[in-house]
């Protein structure tokens, strides 16, 4: 790899765009949200985020999945936290999500539609639930 220019990045994206357009589905309906507050950052949420990006791409899910970052979800004791929102599955917040668990979330929850039971922390902490 050599230093890439903005033009090279543009060209790379344009090459991939044609390929992606073929796979693009109407309205992405799966969201994976990574908590990136002070607590998440300290616990390694940045690595979790990057592992999710890699795994979503490796499994050909880029056209269906929106990957987002948010602040603290109120579960500081089990950071890094990841929320998955998708059809046919309950909205789920996972805790203690390191790289390996991040990979399992994509493969087992998103693709396999099964819950990772030992990592579920399904309700936000009481201080951030809207009254």
């Amino acid at each position: 790899m050599a230093k890439m220019t903005l033009e090279q990045l543009r060209k790379l994206r344009e090459e991939k765009k044609g390929e992606m357009d073929k796979r693009e589905v109407e309205g992405k309906n799966i969201q994976i949200i990574v908590g990136m507050g002070t607590c998440g950052i300290a616990a390694g949420a940045k690595q979790t985020f990057e592992e999710i990006i890699r795994e979503v791409d490796a499994n050909g899910l880029a056209a269906q999945v929106v990957i987002r970052q948010t602040g603290c979800m109120g579960l500081c004791h089990v950071e890094p936290t990841v929320e998955v929102v998708m059809p046919d599955m309950p909205d789920t917040i996972y805790g203690r999500v390191d790289g390996a668990i991040a990979k399992e979330i994509v493969v087992r929850h998103v693709l396999g539609k099964a819950l990772l039971e030992n990592h579920i922390y399904d309700r936000p902490a009481v201080d951030i639930v809207k009254q």
């Binding site: 994206r13 991939k16 999710i52 990006i53 890699r54 899910l61 880029a62 999945v65 990957i67």
Partner: peptide, 11 residues
């Protein structure tokens, strides 16, 4: 928000 775009950006 797209994995493939983020991988290219990371590179």
């Amino acid at each position: 928000n797209k994995a493939d775009a983020l991988l290219d950006l990371k590179d």
